[in-house]
Design a protein around this nucleic acid. Structure first.
Lengths: 223, 223
DNA sequence: AGTGACTAGATTGTCGACATTATTGACGAT
DNA sequence: ATCGTCAATAATGTCGACAATCTAGTCACT
């Protein structure tokens, strides 16, 4: 029976707990309590908090402890902008490096996407969307950019649903993915970057719209 | 007389020591030794190392300690690519947000750049180059992207000189900066992003060339 | 000489204890 | 009632000690 757990596990577990919503935004992370919850020592929790702070998932204030970082609407938009720039770069790189197997996987994902759209399964579509992008990241073979995009993704996860569930969004998204695929298949760098940026500009626009309308409705009710 | 130093200072000091070359790439960072050198406790050093690991300046291996991270030539090129994408985004944002004072500062920097170029002062030019970009970051008002660019910059600092000191590079660089300035002054988003990306593509090309020629010369001598 | 087991030393990982610092709530003065 | 003071409590920051782990060197054996 193992009691001691290596500290990097504490990091991964706490990260997972935060990203999956086990802690709410702005919730205070008391070291002792967290340590008990994730079965680790306070030392390990402390190290994990420092890493998560650097990563942007947590804010750490001296002598005042840690909180789950609240990503504001505005910041979510910023993150999405950066993601567009980075994924544009990745798509460009991927265009000159995709191999037949990558293309096969992308095509497969697109096929499944059609099914989900017809079934009206937004969650399932979201999942496929993530897979599509991951295949491109792998093909791009660019660890630096991939690492940064991954970090951004976990910060913005809370907003993921707001865009995915806009009516008609999935259909348009699917078409955009098909354009990206065509560009990659043609190994056209410029077209791939353009298509990816275009796609993420649409996502950004949708998110902006969703946030605005949410803001307004929130102002109507209590007003 | 204060002996105790707050731990975030340990981070800043160690970071500064690494970035400014006080430790060599791949040099081992023994906690006790570092603690003494930067006048801090081992606990503080440990926290600093975790942050620097997450930041990419240091690699941390379990039970095997920390080393100054060696940025390979290839990785330096990747970093420069990402920087180009991010700074392109920042230039675009800046185009719609620059105020007269920002433009005044940029013009001032360009003026001084002319002087340095004529004086053949590569180091001074580098300094001004950094200032130019920083003004743009401030005008862009985009904390997320700015934070990431800053992090990249410190990782790639070792390669900064290799590009700056190529003969004739400063003159061309200066012209590129003037194009960026014009686009910002005209508040033309597309032109600003294009100009910035063009500029950094030149930097990337120069770096690539410098690395290649260095690689070759290194292979000639001992071979 | 080369290989592998083993030991001694160096270094990191973790814990518990305690000092330092924030936060909360009670209390009294205005 | 509002504000400021102050004590009580809770939480974080730091240290020293020790356990766990790696590394380098020795020595026996082939």
């Amino acid at each position: 029976m193992r009691v001691q757990v290596e500290s990097s596990d504490a990091y991964h577990r706490l990260r997972e707990a935060i990203v999956s919503g086990g802690f709410h935004p702005n919730e205070r992370l008391v070291e002792a309590a967290v340590a008990e919850r994730i079965q680790a020592g306070r030392t390990a929790v402390r190290a994990a908090l420092v890493r998560l702070d650097q990563e942007g998932l947590v804010t750490l204030e001296r002598n005042r402890g840690a909180r789950v970082r609240h990503i504001s609407d505005e910041e979510a938009l910023e993150i999405e902008e950066v993601r567009a720039a980075l994924e544009g770069l990745l798509a460009r790189r991927a265009a000159t490096r995709v191999n037949p197997d990558d293309l096969r996987q992308l095509l497969e994902v697109i096929g499944e996407m059609h099914e989900r759209v017809e079934a009206g399964d937004a969650a399932g579509y979201s999942e496929l969307n993530a897979r599509f992008h991951q295949v491109i990241w792998a093909a791009a073979d660019h660890p630096t950019a991939t690492r940064m995009v991954g970090s951004l993704k976990s910060q913005a996860i809370r907003f993921q649903f707001q865009t995915a569930q806009q009516p008609g969004r999935a259909q348009r998204s699917l078409r955009e993915h098909e354009v990206i695929f065509s560009a990659l298949k043609a190994r056209d760098e410029d077209a791939a970057e353009d298509a990816m940026r275009q796609h993420l500009a649409e996502v950004l626009g949708t998110l902006r719209w969703a946030i605005d309308s949410h803001r307004n409705s929130a102002r109507w009710l209590p007003g």
